[in-house]
Computed example of a mutant assay.
Amino acid sequence: MKKTFAKLLLLTSLAATPFIIGGCDKVANSAKNLQSDWVGLDRRIEIYSCMSGKLLKVFEGDVRINPEDTLGTSLLVDGKKVNTNMCYIITEKGTKAQILPQ
């Protein structure tokens, strides 16, 4: 009886875990960063002047965002760090196809 209850409790816990974790924004962002690190997300970043709205710079490539920054934002674009405190728009183009070794 105790083993059956323990198995039922374990299966219920395992089934509920993705729903509990999946709702958390921080976990979802971490999963997106892991996907960006492992597979590479092709993104386009447009940096604008916050006062005039003029487009200043465009970056395209594999981009990772550092959400831990308190002053401004740091982005890792194709392995190079870009720091900005300007307004920006990030557009995700999709994931890159990986060729599996045979």
Rank of each mutant, 00 (worst) to 15 (best):
residue 56 L to G: 01
residue 39 V to Q: 10
residue 71 L to I: 15
residue 46 E to N: 12
residue 10 L to V: 14
residue 14 L to E: 10
residue 86 M to F: 11
residue 40 G to W: 07
residue 76 L to E: 14
residue 47 I to K: 10
residue 6 A to M: 01
residue 46 E to W: 05
residue 53 G to F: 03
residue 8 L to K: 05
residue 48 Y to V: 04
residue 73 T to C: 12
residue 74 S to F: 03
residue 36 S to E: 07
residue 36 S to V: 08
residue 48 Y to I: 12
residue 35 Q to W: 02
residue 42 D to C: 05
residue 64 R to Y: 01
residue 57 K to H: 03
residue 78 D to S: 15
residue 85 N to S: 13
residue 32 K to H: 04
residue 9 L to P: 04
residue 76 L to P: 03
residue 79 G to N: 00
residue 50 C to P: 00
residue 85 N to W: 07
residue 41 L to I: 10
residue 1 M to D: 15
residue 66 N to S: 10
residue 55 L to V: 15
residue 79 G to K: 00
residue 84 T to L: 08
residue 95 T to A: 13
residue 52 S to I: 11
residue 41 L to K: 04
residue 55 L to C: 04
residue 33 N to P: 00
residue 75 L to A: 09
residue 36 S to F: 04
residue 51 M to R: 09
residue 39 V to G: 00
residue 88 Y to R: 04
residue 59 F to P: 06
residue 31 A to L: 09
residue 78 D to T: 13
residue 95 T to Q: 12
residue 89 I to M: 09
residue 41 L to C: 00
residue 70 T to F: 07
residue 49 S to F: 09
residue 31 A to Y: 07
residue 91 T to W: 02
residue 29 N to C: 05
residue 66 N to A: 07
residue 52 S to R: 06
residue 44 R to S: 10
residue 53 G to E: 05
residue 55 L to R: 06
residue 85 N to C: 11
residue 26 K to A: 10
residue 28 A to Q: 14
residue 39 V to K: 07
residue 3 K to F: 10
residue 61 G to N: 06
residue 43 R to I: 01
residue 19 F to R: 05
